[in-house]
Amino acid sequence: MKTWLDAWPVFRQLTGPDPLGRGAAARSRATENVVARTATADRVVQSVCPYCSVGCAQRVYVKDEQVVQIEGDPDSPVNRGRLCPKGSASKSLVTSPTRVTKVRYRRPYGTEWEDLDLDTAMEMIADRVLDARRRYWQDECDGKRVNRTMGIASLGGAALDNEENYLMKKLYSAMGAIQIENQARI
């Protein structure tokens, strides 16, 4: 007859065939019922961590069109399946209940935020870019032809890759901006 002592993991470890407590002695009924989130996923999507310019590969596990787990990709030569603490916590970027999923806008001198539809927000941004370009346009500076605007600048994030930086440079240069930088230092 089994007693409460038999259910105690330390007792099982000391009296059983698993003295180091790495096998059966460390397992309980609750442990036996645990299933990894990755085992129940419908599909795995390859992705890249958004935090820095290293570009660690990730495996995103999806079940019922919801992200259930994000792990490092062991097939990646960049991170070999490992993620830093930020990368390991990147699932919360998608699943956090506090994640903002609407365009939020606070009018100048306003005290409250309001929701905007995406088309309205994009029109507002386009209008402001064109206005800044027009107001700060310079044909000449010190007698030299410059054809530039000092009203638009770009500081790219460290998570942008070379291709994205190339496109940003082309876009801002086409608008006449000359202050175009990227903060990536790796």
Rank of each mutant, 00 (worst) to 15 (best):
M1P: 13
K2S: 14
L5F: 10
D6S: 15
A7T: 04
A7P: 01
A7I: 02
P9G: 05
V10E: 13
V10R: 12
R12T: 08
Q13W: 03
Q13M: 15
D18E: 05
D18R: 04
P19I: 04
P19D: 05
G21N: 05
G21V: 07
G21A: 04
A25N: 03
A26H: 04
A26D: 13
R27W: 02
R27H: 07
S28H: 11
A30C: 01
T31H: 11
N33M: 10
N33A: 13
A36I: 07
T38I: 10
A39E: 08
A39F: 00
A41V: 00
D42Y: 00
R43I: 01
R43S: 10
V44P: 00
V45I: 08
Q46S: 12
S47M: 07
V48L: 07
C49H: 03
P50K: 03
Y51R: 06
C52D: 15
C52L: 08
C52T: 14
S53T: 14
G55M: 01
G55S: 04
Q58D: 12
R59C: 02
V68K: 02
V68F: 02
P74S: 11
S76A: 15
P77F: 09
V78K: 09
N79Y: 09
R80E: 12
G81I: 06
R82T: 12
R82N: 07
L83R: 06
L83K: 08
L83Q: 09
C84T: 10
P85A: 15
K86H: 09
G87K: 13
S88Q: 13
S90I: 02
K91A: 15
L93F: 06
V94Y: 11
T98P: 02
R99C: 10
K102S: 11
V103H: 09
V103F: 12
R106A: 03
Y109S: 14
Y109M: 12
G110V: 06
T111K: 12
E112K: 08
E112P: 00
W113I: 03
D115E: 15
D115L: 01
L116D: 08
L116E: 08
D117R: 05
D117P: 02
D117I: 00
D117G: 07
L118M: 10
L118T: 15
L118F: 05
A121K: 02
A121T: 04
A121Y: 01
I125E: 06
V129Y: 07
L130S: 05
R135E: 15
Y136K: 04
D139Y: 09
E140K: 13
E140H: 13
C141M: 12
K144V: 10
R145V: 14
R145M: 02
V146P: 05
V146E: 07
N147L: 04
I152T: 04
A153S: 14
S154N: 08
G157F: 05
G157E: 08
G157D: 06
A159F: 00
D161L: 02
N162Y: 04
Y166R: 13
L167C: 07
L167V: 13
L167S: 09
K169D: 10
K169G: 11
K170Q: 13
K170L: 11
K170I: 12
Y172H: 14
Y172L: 15
Y172A: 11
A174F: 09
Q179N: 14
A184F: 01
A184K: 10
I186Y: 07
I186H: 03
I186Q: 05
